[in-house]
């Protein structure tokens, strides 16, 4: 579904991504692990075209994305839930969902009802301003909003950040369910190792702008492996 080959990208000074190659299949959840500052968020931003790539290729279903603008990449089915959630605080919950319908491109968008079906807590908040929601609800809204455009690839940047533990667990189950039921390819960047290991089919480790290791989640339950790759 998503395949990235030898991707090089940078903000301004010096490349942050130095030749990243990875792939995520339909229905697969891949957890991207690594210490702070190795370029995980930059990778997600590069995949949606918010950071320019200088070399390498990004493909969805074999279609290359490189010279395409961010809004067209979104319409082709790549949805990003950025760190800090990225909801629009001054719009109501319903309007946040409506605003995402454009991302469907030529595919039919989900209705508001369909989008919030997995999140019963959001139903009664539909007229409320999104900025007034709790951290967990904002995260749920951000995921619901990403799903409105019926994406093929979902990129999640630290969905557990600032969210209370029981909601984190719910988000983990939901991510797993989205991949299993909608055949989404999901790439998740997550500091919460428990959440990452519980949801992922496969973990990849990034260091100094490259993917340095790939393996099943169980491998990362081993203390020695963790220390070697993540210095934990």
């Amino acid at each position: 579904m998503l395949s990235v080959d030898n991707l090089v990208a940078s903000y301004n000074a010096g490349p942050v991504l130095q030749g990243v190659s990875l792939s995520v299949q339909a229905g697969e959840v891949v957890a991207l692990l690594g210490r702070n500052g190795v370029g995980k968020s930059t990778l997600l931003r590069t995949l949606v075209g918010l950071v320019p790539s200088w070399n390498g290729s990004i493909r969805i279903d074999g279609t290359p994305l490189a010279p395409i603008a961010t809004h067209d990449i979104a319409r082709m089915g790549m949805a990003l839930v950025p760190q800090g959630r990225g909801i629009i605080g001054k719009l109501s919950v319903a309007d946040n969902l409506r605003a995402a319908m454009r991302a469907a491109g030529s595919r039919p968008a989900l209705s508001i009802d369909q989008a919030i079906a997995p999140f019963p807590a959001l139903r009664e908040k539909l007229p409320a301003m999104a900025g007034t929601l709790s951290g967990g609800q904002q995260q749920q809204l951000a995921i619901a909003r990403a799903m409105v455009g019926r994406p093929k690839v979902l990129l999640l940047d630290e969905p557990s950040e600032g969210v209370q533990p029981n909601i984190v667990q719910q988000i983990g189950q939901l991510v797993r369910k989205l991949a299993d039921e909608s055949g989404l390819a999901i790439l998740i960047v997550e500091q919460n190792l428990e959440l990452a290991l519980a949801t992922a089919n496969r973990c990849i480790v990034m260091a100094k702008g490259r993917i340095v290791h790939s393996g099943p989640p169980d491998e990362f339950r081993n203390e020695a492996v963790l220390r070697r790759h993540l210095a934990l």
């Binding site: 809004h71 990225g86 629009i88 719009l91 995402a100 454009r102």
Partner: peptide
């Protein structure tokens, strides 16, 4: 209407609005 929503999104964070599929 929709124009107002998009403009609010752009004022909030243009990158976010682009990632939602809008040619900001």
């Amino acid at each position: 209407g929709r124009l107002g929503r998009v403009l609010t999104a752009i004022q909030d964070d243009e990158a976010k609005a682009r990632a939602l599929g809008y040619d900001t």
